[in-house]
Amino acid sequence: MTATLIETTSLRRPEKPARRRGPRSSGRPGRFGDNLTGYGFLCAALICFALFSWYPIIRGVLLSFQQVDFVNPATWVGWANFQKLFADPLFAVAWRNTLYFTLLALVFGFAIPFVVAMVINEFRHAKGFFRLVVYLPVMLPPVVTALLWKWFYDPGPGLFNTLLHAVNLPGLSWLDSSSTSMLSLVLVSTWANMGSATLIYLAALGGIPGELYEASELDGATIWQRVRYITIPHTRFVLLVMMLLQIVATMQVFTEPYVMTGGGPEDSTVTVLLLLYRYAFVYNDFGTASAMSLLLFLALGAFSALYLRLTRTRG
């Protein structure tokens, strides 16, 4: 549920290109010379990935087993960084909080955009306007969003408690209570990121043939039956992919707890990435931070593989 970039290109299976005829086509498709430009572009991308992604990842893995002070050569410390992590009581707390955030984000951040997309899809007019309205929060910088909601949550003159008081309801502590702090962060995250997911769902809904709905209406199907038997089956794969995206992204939640709560109150919003950040940039312990990063990487990798296997089998 972090930043998503929308790129609209068709997924339809490309038509088989007609074989070129002419002097350059000698009947040996894929000849190196024919694809030179393509290889050139590929090289640029590969170099970028190698320099800025793959090499740092490998260095990160090595660093997990080292102690560094950036002055003397790094020393190998075996599993010491991992042992230090497991001995830190906050390590388990951070994982528990992160999983809790992910669960709440699934309940809110996964369901709400789909419902909103279905509602907007039903509009006959001003669809574009509502698409824009839903997408607008995505355009706000994440830190600005977090600071804005911090004011909404202010237990004194904040927007939400003012509204609650206006209808004679008691105000809530929102971020100041460990029982509501995580939920408060999830609401921010959902609001800020639902625009992208809604647009994707809208695109998927737009691909469902209208005749199916017309036929079901003639057969007397209720709204729920139409959703259950037409909408969901036709958007199943989008839903499955979006769920995977969302889980992987929400497991890396950082901005909201960093800006809004600093991990508090009483560690109730310390997430894996926030703890990782502290190890790296507050305690300057890059070895332990890398070990934590590696564990997150492995956990998300294992989860993604399992998820894809399960969904492919069922598909």
Binding site: A3, E7, T8, L11, A203, A204, G207, R236, Y277
Partner: peptide
Amino acid sequence: NIPMVSVTTKPLPDAE
């Protein structure tokens, strides 16, 4: 230090 998830995604018209 924030791993930003940049996801390129696209509409999925047909169930292929």
